[in-house]
Design a protein around this nucleic acid. Structure first.
Lengths: 204, 204
DNA sequence: TGGGCCACTGACTGACGTGTCAGTCGACGC
DNA sequence: GCGTCGACTGACACGTCAGTCAGTGGCCCA
């Protein structure tokens, strides 16, 4: 193994992977800057420093590369969520979940921006995908809230709406950070969000 | 006054206003169904039952009619918000505000859908307009929260974030109702949202 | 040296959809 | 009846941009 031919094949594969990565990164930048519809394939290839045709050697079409970028984030997002174990320290687990998610989203703000502001209206099928992802997250959260209500650690009420409000609050704060140039620290955001979930805003 | 000529002029003006309204309504339906980018002027004129050219007698271009529809909603939205008077019954005033806003947004779900899911990525200038509107709402809310904190009726903490979370929760629940076909009653939504602001979700 | 391979190129094409404008038509006044 | 007006029409011109494909050049092996 590792005869010259093989080594070469490997080097070539690496080069291709690198090239692919370059295009992917350029695409992320362009999509984040201009939005999906205003982003031209021309802009992407120009930024990546390759010709128009090369783009199509690596990706099916404009939509495909957009989808790949978003998909990667969705997968990582899904993995960042941990089910809460009611036997343990619940508040701390909730806080950890929030922290992991916020961290993930702020790690690559450009991709988050794409997800939050461009992912709608790309294509009906793609819209459905995004929607069903958030729906899954919502359902998972809702189930946890119902469990929590039975154990008395979650406020009684419409759990589905509590889940929606929570997701909305998260989405909106991420939107502010990522679209507007807010530079609040991750910790501040995590603590503020946790505080909001714990006590709401009104103390009347 | 009201001589034949005058009466006729009035009738003509009415006819024009009606025609304009027809096109506006068709546009709202098409934008809500397909999203801004996928909506074709062709679709709008077809639904309105007029020719392509007629559209351009009434509106500058596709963007202009979209902007007019959204602007109308933004104005009404702005008017639905009342400043809270700390001398009075604060919770009830907050609840009224929520109720008015939810009512307004559910009154014309199609326009709300446009605002929530299509208004981004239309055009940089338009994006800025939408953004600055929500920013104004956010600032107003933040000020109120700061006042409330001093009076002890709002939970201590980062008021700007509390404002963002609140707006996010509202946006997300409206999105669910309007994009997904949720049919929860207005009262349920208002009460759930109010409850969330009052107590959060966790009771630990 | 030459020939095959393959990543890469960029001029080109075709589709699409916006906005235009020369022309139609009915109403109305004279 | 005849001329004027203006709302309305819809075929067309035009720009834009995604995706294609015939061609180039560098590299390696025989």
């Amino acid at each position: 193994m590792a005869e010259p031919t093989e080594r070469k094949r490997q080097a070539a594969a690496d080069a291709k992977a690198t090239r692919r990565q370059e295009i992917l990164q350029a695409a992320r930048d362009v999509f984040a800057k201009h939005g999906y519809h205003a982003a031209k394939v021309e802009d992407i290839v120009h930024l990546a420093g390759v010709a128009r045709g090369t783009f199509y050697l690596y990706f099916e079409d404009k939509r495909a590369i957009f989808e790949e970028i978003v998909d990667r984030l969705l997968v990582r997002f899904g993995m960042a969520i941990a089910r809460v174990d009611v036997a343990g320290n619940v508040p701390e687990q909730v806080r950890s979940n929030i922290r992991r998610i916020v961290h993930l989203l702020l790690e690559d703000k450009l991709t988050t921006k794409m997800l939050l502001s461009d992912a709608h209206g790309v294509d009906p099928a793609f819209d459905r995908k995004i929607h069903s992802f958030f729906e899954q997250v919502g359902s998972l959260l809702e189930e946890s809230l119902v469990d929590g209500q039975e154990l008395g650690i979650v406020v009684k009420g419409n759990a589905r709406m509590q889940a929606i409000f929570t997701i909305g609050a998260l989405k909106e704060v991420m939107n502010q950070v990522v679209v507007r140039g807010w530079d609040d620290s991750e910790d501040d955001i995590v603590e503020a969000l946790f505080g909001f979930l714990r006590a709401g805003a009104l103390s009347v």
